[in-house]
C-alpha cells in the first residue's frame, strides 16, 4: 500500500504517521508538502493531526484552502481513501468532505489522554479487521473535538451506519460520562457517504506500537491494508 502523509504548516503528527506507516506497517510512505499539487499516486492519504496555520480563525479553516487540498478533494471524490486524524478530521469538515463541525470541548480544556472507543461499524475499509463492538484504547489530544451537526445529519449518519467510533467505557458502554468533549452521541469518528473518507479525533498512530502503551490503532491500518489488497 502506498501512503501519502500531507504536511501542513503546523502539522505535528506527520512524523508519527510516517513512522507507523513506514516502519511499523512496512508501507511505501512519503510526505506531501501542502503546496504541492502531486499526491504521488497513493492508495491512502493521511491528513495528520496538529495545529495547521496555528488554528487561526477556526481549526482547519485555512488549511482547507492549501494548494494540495484541491487534489485531496479530487482524490476523495474519485473514491480514493482518505483518513483525517484530529486536525485532519477538522480539515475534512471544513473542506466539506465530511458533514458537521467542531466546537470547543465542553470543558473548554485541551484534553490529552487515553480514551476507550467502541467500534460501531466493521464493514468499512477502515475497520474490516476489527470485531463488532470491539473496544479500542487510543489517545485523544485536542481542544476542539466537540462534534456537532444538525439533527437530520446525525440521523443520516446513524441510519447509514456512518458513525464508526463512539467514546465508551472500557467495557463498551456508551454514556455521557465517557464522553470526553461533549460530542453529539459520543461521536469520535465518522465516514463520508461513499465510505472512502474517515475522520476521527483519536490518534491511532499514537497507539500502534506496544512501547507506546497500546497497539489498538493497528487494527485500522491492518484493515486498510486488507482492503487495499497489498
Amino acid at each position: 500500500m502506498k501512503v501519502s502523509v500531507v504536511v501542513f504548516p503546523g502539522s505535528n503528527c506527520d512524523s508519527d504517521c510516517f513512522n507507523v506507516m513506514k516502519d511499523v506497517m512496512k508501507c511505501d510512505t512519503q510526505f506531501v508538502w501542502h503546496k504541492d499539487h502531486d499526491l504521488k499516486k497513493p492508495d491512502l492519504v493521511i491528513l495528520p493531526g496538529g495545529f495547521s496555520y496555528g488554528d487561526y480563525l477556526r481549526c482547519g479553516a485555512i488549511a482547507r484552502f492549501s494548494p494540495v487540498m484541491r487534489e485531496v478533494v479530487q482524490f476523495a471524490n474519485n473514491g480514493g481513501t482518505v483518513i483525517g486524524i484530529c486536525n485532519g478530521f477538522q480539515i475534512l469538515l471544513e473542506a466539506g468532505l465530511l458533514p458537521g463541525a467542531m466546537l470547543a470541548n465542553r470543558s473548554l480544556k485541551f484534553i490529552c489522554k487515553h480514551v476507550w472507543l467502541r467500534t460501531e461499524n466493521t464493514k468499512s475499509k477502515f475497520t474490516n479487521r476489527l470485531k463488532p463492538a470491539q473496544v479500542l484504547n487510543i489517545p485523544i489530544a485536542h481542544g476542539e473535538g466537540n462534534y456537532t451537526a444538525d439533527p437530520d445529519t446525525i440521523k443520516r449518519l446513524r441510519d447509514e451506519n456512518r458513525i464508526v467510533f463512539r467514546y465508551s467505557s472500557e467495557s463498551g458502554e456508551i454514556a455521557d460520562k465517557f464522553n470526553p468533549n461533549g460530542a453529539v452521541e459520543n461521536i469520535a469518528g465518522i465516514l463520508n457517504e461513499k465510505g472512502n473518507v474517515l475522520g476521527m479525533m483519536p490518534h491511532p498512530e499514537r497507539a500502534s506500537e506496544d512501547i507506546l502503551g497500546s497497539h489498538d490503532g493497528r487494527g485500522i491500518w491492518e484493515s486498510l491494508l486488507e482492503s487495499a489488497g497489498k
Binding site: L103, R106, L108, T148
Partner: peptide, 13 residues
Amino acid sequence: TLKKSVLDPQGQT
C-alpha cells in the same frame, strides 16, 4: 456568532 441552536461552552463559562 454561534447559531442559537448551537451550544456555546465559552459563552456559558
